[in-house]
Computed example of a mutant assay.
Amino acid sequence: MTQPPRSYSTIGLKILMGSSGLILFLFLIVHMLGNWQVFLPPYYMNTYAYFLKSKPAVLWSIRLFLLMALVVHVISAIRLWKINRQARPQPYALLLPNQASFESRTMIFSGLVVLSFILFHLYHFTFKAPPFGYFKNFLYQFEKSQVSIPDVRAMVIAGFQNPWVTLFYILSLTILYFHLRHALESFLNSLGFVNSKSLPWERIVAHAFALVVYGGFLIVPLAVFLRLVH
């Protein structure tokens, strides 16, 4: 069986990586907005979390869809990285500033760090595994009702009062920012609306979106750790 030309294979992988990355980026926006409910009274974040958990079919469909997008994104990124390495087995003797940005040269490594961060985030808040098992005892009771639900807001506050957890989140979010900044810039570049004589709008838009997501996620652990939320 003949192998497809490498250029077609690379284009297909880039399409897969870009489309799956866009799905994950849109999820980040929704997740960020959900996190902001920590600044509201406990009722809002807890009922929001309870509503999601009360629809297991919908919740698991979304989770499996996001997991599929993540797997496609990671596999296509690693495959592209290997193709690029095979195309140039010997590294450049001199890296000039206009050849490639630091973010583009380290995308595979920043992506692996982000993946580790995702796994820890699930370990921390979703699975509540040791030493975070005490989160399972956090319950929120509705007023004038005997119904108790998991107190997700209290988990968030308790989690980010730990300085080591907060520091890890800040470092991971910073790496995510640089990863996202280059990823969005590459995605907008691939739309083909940019030429060498035009304003680098794709860079401006990509950096702005990445900064909004970075600040939007960062404000929660910082506000909790500084005791601005309780």
Rank of each mutant, 00 (worst) to 15 (best):
L180E: 09
L40T: 03
I78K: 06
S19N: 03
V156N: 01
P5W: 00
R79K: 13
M68Y: 04
I62A: 13
M45L: 15
A87V: 09
G159N: 07
I78R: 07
F127E: 10
F160Q: 01
T106A: 08
T47C: 10
G34I: 08
I62L: 14
K55M: 14
A69S: 14
T47F: 02
R88D: 12
V152N: 10
I15K: 14
A206Y: 05
V58P: 01
V212K: 00
K53T: 05
L95T: 00
V156R: 02
E143A: 12
A154K: 14
L67C: 08
H179A: 06
H73Q: 12
Y50V: 02
Y214R: 05
G215Q: 07
I83S: 03
L80A: 02
I62D: 08
R85F: 00
W201I: 07
I108Q: 11
L96A: 07
V212D: 04
F51W: 03
L191V: 08
L226W: 08
M155G: 08
Y214S: 01
I83G: 02
Q99A: 10
Y43F: 12
L191P: 08
Y214I: 02
L66D: 07
F178Q: 05
R105M: 10
R203Y: 06
L171A: 15
V71A: 15
L94N: 06
P221M: 09
W201Q: 04
P150S: 07
T10W: 03
F135G: 02
F120T: 08
F209A: 13
P221G: 09
L180K: 04
P130M: 12
